[in-house]
Design a binder for these strands. Structure first.
Length: 477
DNA sequence: TGAAATGTTGGGGCG
DNA sequence: ACGCCCCAACATTTC
């Protein structure tokens, strides 16, 4: 049983099948440098991965089993372990990024004598199971959503989940001992040498048990005010399930199941429906990743190939990354990201709009930074989100929709609680200036140890609109 | 899952 | 009583 983005025991079809069919199961995780989903993500995600693996190891041990770790090319390690153990079969759950699909296809062919069994543990629907009538992929969310809901209402069993296997048959002692390809979890070196991750991890609990507890906390109260609460970064209004879902500590089927209970989608409250849609946005992102794999680093709307971005932007990019732009809500978001590995969704949109439209820096730079610093870094959701803001994606926000960070702050962080939490320099500032400290009188401004704005918001907005008007007449790809 | 510019409406002050 | 103007509030259009 080869674990990847499915670090859980419950509702894990590959594991369930392995336990049903085999009298010994080797539970394996490989840190493969070629792996786009696991190894080519950033430092924050790898810290999470370490703790998630540790949690999975404990769960397996509690079941009398064990989790084995290896490092290197997956093909070679699998073949080596098959040789050492005399394994008869191989099981895994599918990933959907282009490099992994390609690698898994090669492995499936190379191991065809072992009848590889592959399953879906990551998504409600396979990306090839929800298509338009003409057989091509949806590029607009709403019809995608309608079609998914119709499918689930027609056949609620699609959302059924599997229990944790009652018995996970361990390797016999003699076989388990001689696995030379395997190393200890620490030897995967997922944790950084420099000790910055401890403070980040005070914000999180990793693993399947923690993920389920998080879901239950959310469903108990927060979901009932989700429509409003999810937009207020100063309070905990979101589910914060993203890293758990990314690593497969919890399955979207389980989430949807718990949300619905015995109800149909049309019986959900407005707030619950918005949450259900967020889960399906994630599905939509995987669908786009699968059908348009180049969209991870190229604009889907080819007009944007000719877009004239700003030049010599290194200093601006660094200021953005470090939360030193002089725009309070932008800096608060970037600092929350760096400190916790996570950023509130409303603020993700604001900082992305600022990078792309006010600083005129290509969205790919922001996407890379997010991929390196988010614990929930997910190729599908991240690239879709950035293309959404850039206006070059599927069903994207139009480019001329430029967020004004001052108005966004006034609207969603009225008292400035969020800004003051992450930008303590502004802690003493009056409410009406907290989102625009540059309007303070010169003396109070000088007393603040806070940068003045990197760029003028009004001016750079107009510059972005001008740059967009240069490409908007040309043909879309 | 915008913001800014522009247009419309209607109440009230005032000559 | 009436017309005129101002302007806030809201609606629509444009980017």
């Amino acid at each position: 049983m080869w674990f990847r983005q499915d670090l859980r025991l419950s509702d894990n079809p590959a594991l369930t099948e392995a336990c049903r069919r085999c009298d010994q199961v080797l539970c394996l995780f490989i840190d493969d440098p070629q792996d786009q989903t696991i190894s080519q993500v950033g430092a924050a995600s790898r810290v999470w991965l370490h703790h998630s693996l540790a949690a999975l190891q404990i769960s397996l041990r509690n079941k009398g089993s064990e989790l084995y770790f290896a490092r290197g090319a997956s093909e070679e390690i699998l073949e080596k372990l098959i040789g050492q153990t005399g394994a008869q079969r191989v099981y895994w759950n599918r990933c959907y990024d282009p490099l992994t699909i390609d690698r898994d296809r090669r492995i499936k062919l190379a191991l065809r004598d072992y009848q590889p069994g592959t399953f879906n543990a990551l998504l409600l629907q396979e990306p090839w199971d929800n298509l338009k009538g003409d057989g091509t992929a949806y590029r607009v969310f709403t019809p995608y959503w309608r079609s998914a809901v119709a499918e689930f209402d027609k056949d609620p069993q699609l959302l059924d989940t599997l229990n944790t296997p009652r018995h996970i048959p361990p390797l016999t002692r003699s076989v388990g001992k001689k696995l030379q390809a395997c190393v200890a979890l620490n030897e995967l070196c997922l944790l950084p040498e420099f000790d910055w991750h401890r403070s980040m991890m005070t914000h999180w609990r990793c693993g399947e048990v923690a993920a389920r507890a998080q879901l239950e906390r959310f469903l108990k109260s927060r979901v009932n005010d989700y429509g409003r609460g999810r937009d207020l970064p100063g309070q905990e209004g979101t589910s914060q399930l993203s890293p758990h879902l990314h690593f497969g500590e919890i399955s979207p089927r389980h989430v949807m199941n718990r949300l619905l209970g015995s109800r149909r989608f049309d019986q959900l409250s407005d707030d619950e429906l918005i949450f259900a849609k967020e889960i399906v946005w994630r599905e939509f992102a995987y669908c786009l990743l699968y059908h348009f794999p180049h969209s991870i680093d190229e604009p889907l709307d080819t007009r944007f190939r000719k877009f004239r971005w700003a030049r010599d932007t290194d200093a601006h990019l660094r200021a953005w990354q470090r939360g030193q732009t002089g725009v309070p809500i932008v800096d608060a978001g970037m600092r929350e990201l760096y400190a916790t590995g996570w950023m509130h969704n409303r603020v993700r949109m604001i900082v992305a709009s600022y990078l792309i439209k006010n600083l005129l820096i290509p969205w790919q730079s922001g996407e890379r930074w997010f991929r390196d610093t988010l614990v929930d870094a997910d190729l599908a959701s991240n690239s879709m989100g950035w293309q959404w803001t850039a206006g070059s994606g599927a069903d994207a926000s139009p480019f001329f929709r430029v967020f004004n960070p001052v108005l966004q702050g006034d609207k969603f962080d009225r008292q400035g609680d969020y800004v003051k939490r992450w930008v303590p320099e502004l802690a003493g500032i009056a409410e009406r200036y907290v989102h625009k400290p540059w309007e303070l009188d010169a003396q109070s401004r000088d007393a603040l140890d806070y940068p003045s704005p990197l760029v003028d918001l009004k001016e750079t907005r107009l510059r972005a609109l001008k740059a967009f008007s240069d490409i908007k007449g040309t043909n879309r790809g």
